[in-house]
Design a protein around this nucleic acid. Structure first.
Length: 129
RNA sequence: AGUGCAAGCCGACUUGCCGCUGGUCUGAAGGUAAUUCUUCAGAUAAGAGGAAAGUCCGGGCAACGCAGAGCACCAUACUUCCUAACAGGAAGGUGUCCAGCCGGAGACAGCUUGACAACAGAUAGUGCCACAGAAAAUAUACCGCCUUCAUACCGAUAUUAUCGGCAUAAGGGUAAGGGUGAAAAGGUGGAGUAAGAGACCACCGCUUUCUCAGUGAUGAGAAAGGCAUGGCAAACCUUAUGGGUUGAAAGAUCAAAUAGGUCCCGCGAUGAAACUCGUUUUCAUAAAAGGUUGCUCGUCUUUAUGCGGGAUGGGUAGAUCGAUUGAGCCUGACUGCAAAGUCCGGUCUAGAUAGAUGGCAAGAGAUUCAUCCAUUAAGGAUGUUGAACAGAACCCGGCUUAUAGGCUUGCACUUUUU
RNA sequence: GGCCUCGUAGUUCAAUGGAUAGAAUAGUUGUUUCCUAAACAAUAGAUAUGGGUUCGAUUCCCGUCGAGGCUA
């Protein structure tokens, strides 16, 4: 599996973002809030992911960019944990809720945990939003 | 060599691996009549700032309004110039303040360096000036000063009067003085007077007019006024000048279906007349409603609502353009005191769109802290820490604010050597 | 990205440019009570920040910082 992260793997459609925040199931794993939604195969060919850092938590744009870059890098290096899913694809929202700047190693460890959790989650989670 | 001030410039590096963005080239696959388009792979060079920030000004660009006028609103405010434009910049003028020098008895004036100035108008009008103070803007109401007359008292001479002093009441002349206050009605000195006063004189300050110099702000000189009306316009306001409004989430193009929208045609308002007496025909009509940037004028459209038929075509999701060749950058020459302008030559240097510059490893390292050594002092070694402010979002010109450290130039001071 | 509004005691609000910035509540101390509450009395506490205009600034003007809202 390649370790690239192209534009079609990032979530940029306004409709899908709205759907994710309306219908998706969420859980916390500090310092992240994670939202997941399973979608049909024909809408998207790959998993799509969204990274978000709040302006309320980190005031300066430099620090927000830094955290987003570290999150993106950690997802890129570890996305093979999710593997190939036959049933459908997932859209994932990763929202940073801490107000401190965390090093890359911490973020990578947390992302690994999150991806493992998502993979092991049963499909029945979708039925009771 | 060091320290301080001012101006200008730069804004932490190397290697390896894995990645992101748009461009160019090559190859493969698919589509098209073709130019060519889409996808994938590889190669190649490139990829945040001096403030990208705050959004405080000014423009370009775009849409809207039927063109336009006035009012309202907003902004600016010494002069000349620069500029696409500006509340920006350059040069200059004036004023205030600090310091120094100097003249004068004094009021005050002159020169030099530096800093600062929202620096039009306070006799166009309105308003405000707390407390204190006689009075805060029409100065003379008050306390005072001087004087006339009357009365009472005291003293002297002397005798029923005169002179002097003091007090009270009335009248008159004055504005010197009046603990205050941020601010007190030209100032200093003289002469003068019953007491006084620009009422008078000298000087200083002020105002007005004229002449000369300067593009101009203004300056110099002369004459006159005799001084008559303080401060606040970052209070309302007046004058002059400028501004239409809204912002790229503006806007343009592509674009499936339904409803809706828009346009055209017919029926359709009121009154009168005619006859074939039907909701048939002909003629006339005004005002109303609506659109139009905050308002008014002006201007435009329509004849209610609604129904029927026909045509047109766009809101929303998305894509492309707008959108990176521009008041561009660099070098040089010329003009100008300067801001800046002109010309020759060279050059193309981010273009993302939930938002691209990152991660890991190693090295080198400004700096911080601790220990040890040495010295008049600067210093050296080991370990530790590990780089300021900060991220383009349509593009430019400024302003403001944040900023570790380094470099260059000029000035001043100190030390060392010759 | 663009536009607008607001910052006053710990909290909620007042204050025409003019005396020591006021009130409620919360806090502290005391009286009362066997103790607590309530009541009464006293007390401390603030104009976001830096400049400017003015004799004088919470108020007027400018900059900075912070908070909130509108706009697809």
């Amino acid at each position: 599996m390649n370790s690239e992260l192209h534009k079609n793997e990032r979530l940029h459609s306004k409709k899908l973002i709205k759907e994710l925040f309306d219908k998706g199931s969420s859980f916390f794993l500090y310092p992240f809030k994670v939202m997941v939604l399973e979608i049909n195969f024909d809408i998207s060919e790959t998993n799509q992911v969204l990274f978000s850092v709040s302006k309320k938590k980190l005031k300066k744009a430099v620090n927000r960019n830094l955290i987003k870059r570290r999150m993106r890098e950690a997802y890129r290096l570890n996305k093979q944990i999710l593997g190939e899913m036959a049933e459908g694809k997932k859209i994932i929202g990763l929202i940073y809720v801490s107000s401190e700047i965390v090093t890359f190693h911490v973020i990578e460890a947390k992302i690994k945990k999150i991806l493992t959790t998502i993979k092991e989650k049963p499909l029945s989670d979708k039925n009771h939003p």
